[in-house]
Simulated assay, not measured.
Amino acid sequence: MKVLHVITGLAAGGAEQQLRALLPHLTARCEVAALTNPGGVADAIRAEGTPVHHLGMRGNLDLRAVGRLARLMRAGRYDIVHTHLYRACVYGRVAARLARVPAIIATEHSLGDAVIEGRRVTAGIRTLYRATEAMGDVTVAVSRAVADRLARWGVPRSRIEVVPNGVDGTAFRHDPRLGLQARARLGIAPDAFVVGGVGRLEPGKRFDVLLHAVRGFEGAVLLLAGAGSARGTLEDLARVLGVEHRVVFAGESMDMPALLSAMDVLASPSQDETFGLAVVEGLAAGLPVLYASCPALDELPADAAPGARRILPDPDHLRAELRTLAATGPVRLPPPRAVAHYDIRRHAAQLEALYARVLGPPVPVEAGSSSGKQEEYQ
């Protein structure tokens, strides 16, 4: 089985890192195509043995990318095209139909109640999404919350499959040595109380709440890991609040386990999450976690993650919770059952079962036929 994963870009975001984590655990032969911005994740994927193609797309309306993508698909003779993120799903499904790829699957990573991947949902976006979704075979939702949103958009339930995100718990295991090295590299004192925030620096993530929370908490350092359009706004806010000397912007990082090892608590004030991957990774690192929204935990029994506590996205409430944690001293907890439930190997097995089901049983090739692999399946 040969699979082409098509993704909008390969910056160090949640969907991009999820794809990178998944690839080593798939038995299918995989390649990756990035429409734009290959980024550091592309280098990491190549280094781990998976070919990466860069389509060189220039802007959302570069329709030539469809032709380039279709030619790549024809030349690669893929059995399945698996798309990730809005722009890749729209362009990738059209190209896959033009290239007559036998099976088309999409994963919906970032569909919120009112936004998709940080952009405000409009009638045009919704119409284009539904029209191209119908060109595929299955749309994968990373949580039941996303499945419900897809259904509200008009995607038939029969076309939606819930396959939760996965985490390699061993990769995020707490390493005190790496944590101290990361603190030294970032200029953070070894004995500082470090509040961590992980994710794209976009308004919807509400990292401004963290800035306000540490304002009245002398001695706390805020470590933000991620990049995005709101970085400048957050830097300005830190200066206005007078906490710029206690806020560290780590930017995009390919070494998230080291950054998590440098933190004392992970805080996620976003109220519009599709899964909550950073929360689960924080739990895998043994961190106490404070979160406003996390479908991954909401869909499990209440005792599946005893180290996680729901908070209000309010600076005063968050500050009080942080002070309580700081008073007990640094704490590392054993990874809870939630981490094992979302093991990346389970995620890979579910996807490969879906691949096999969508392709259907092999059809014998008649003697003398010159057909290739794409004709072996119905």
Score class of each variant (00 low, 15 high):
I311S: 09
T107F: 10
A220V: 09
V121Q: 07
Q350V: 06
P313W: 03
S229C: 13
V146G: 12
Q271C: 13
D298V: 04
I160N: 06
H25E: 01
E108T: 01
L325H: 02
A114F: 12
A227Y: 10
E375L: 08
F217Y: 11
A305N: 03
R29Q: 14
R144N: 15
F217G: 04
R319G: 03
T170D: 10
R185F: 05
P269H: 03
F275E: 00
D343R: 00
R173L: 07
V248I: 14
T139L: 15
I125G: 06
A134V: 11
G154R: 03
H5C: 08
D168S: 05
E108N: 09
Q374P: 05
V248M: 11
G372N: 14
L211M: 04
R74D: 01
A12T: 14
V221K: 01
V66Y: 02
H53V: 09
V214I: 15
P257S: 01
R173T: 00
A182V: 04
L85G: 02
R126S: 13
A302G: 07
L111A: 04
E218T: 08
S270A: 08
G118F: 14
R149W: 10
A213M: 11
F207E: 06
G179I: 10
S370H: 12
T324C: 06
T107R: 02
A184M: 04
A28P: 03
L10H: 01
A99D: 03
A33H: 05
A15E: 11
R68T: 01
R206H: 07
V243W: 12
L4I: 08
G199R: 10
R93G: 05
Y377S: 09
S371A: 15
A348S: 04
L61I: 09
E244L: 05
A227E: 15
P51F: 06
Q350M: 13
P156T: 03
A340C: 12
A296C: 05
K2N: 11
H317N: 08
G118N: 04
A278S: 13
L26S: 01
G226A: 04
K373L: 12
P176F: 11
L4R: 00
D62L: 07
I7G: 02
R58C: 08
R337D: 14
Y86A: 00
L63Q: 01
K2T: 10
V32E: 00
G372H: 10
A70L: 13
L201P: 14
V243Y: 05
T50A: 15
M256I: 13
V247I: 09
A145Y: 08
T127G: 11
P361R: 09
P306A: 11
D43H: 10
R239S: 11
Y377F: 14
G372D: 15
A285Q: 03
L61E: 08
T27A: 15
V247N: 02
L359D: 05
R231L: 11
A348N: 01
N60I: 08
V198N: 00
A225E: 02
Q350H: 13
F249L: 07
P336I: 01
G9V: 02
R152H: 13
A296W: 00
L266I: 02
P102S: 08
A327F: 04
P269S: 03
R152G: 15
R200G: 00
S158I: 04
S229M: 12
A28W: 14
Q271A: 13
P330F: 06
A258K: 12
P361Y: 05
V101D: 02
G368S: 01
G166F: 09
G40W: 09
A213S: 13
M73P: 03
T83L: 07
T233H: 15
